[in-house]
Design a protein around this nucleic acid. Sequence first.
DNA 1: ATGGTCGGCCCCCGA
Length: 261
Amino acid sequence: MRIATWNVNSIRSRIDRAVGVLERHDLDVLALQETKCKDEQFPVQRFVDAGYEVAMHGLNQWNGVAVVSRVGLDDVQVGFEGMPHWGEPDPAAEARAIGATCGGVRVWSLYVPNGRELGHPHLDYKLDWLASLRDTAGGWLAADAQAQICLMGDWNVAPTDDDVWDPGFFVGKTHVSPPERAGFQGVVDAGYADVVREHTPDQFTYWDYTQLRFPKKQGMRIDFALASPALAARVTGASIDREERKGKGASDHAPVLVELD
DNA sequence: ATGGTCGGCCCCCGA
């Protein structure tokens, strides 16, 4: 089984590339973030034509998440228990998390709040969001230690200084601050392991569109697949599809892929 | 080379 996560930065503008990713990597499941469209605008048929089912949740031109699967798509759930919201009274309205059971694996597509800037209320929202995820996902493992769960998506956190091209550049910026790193670590401490890093040393997943960041290799590692112990035991490999970042019409993120036995 | 932001309720905001 092969699963992946990708911040697609608008599914409508990149549907050809998305189908290409599925087929090139022979993926069973793909978690998408920043779909940037309402559900009725989602190009579902293109995935159906390629042999996949889709569960999505997006209410506006921001955010938006989806799970694409060809190995079943059961028990779809939008948001998680206690998920904080921003602006909208309905937690589901933020469209930042969707989960489904695919081929026996509980897959979550997550789009962690960006935080905007240090001191901004949105950063508090981000930290609250990560804390709620930690508590809820930790609870799933407390209820079933053998659960096969993958929390994957755009975490908007670079957990170590090795995960940014120049730590000096990021002093005073979001994504690297101690509270954000603690928020990420909290989910790890709740029992979820990054199963990609060991297979992709010194690789980034995101390069800003500006300043020629990609050709200059000035990126960040902020997209992760965190697996429960039972699922982590099945991982046989992982990779980051840097090729997908190349050329006209690329997302600013690269797909992150995980192979399971 | 991969190339000088990009996407979307689009001239401004969020990432």
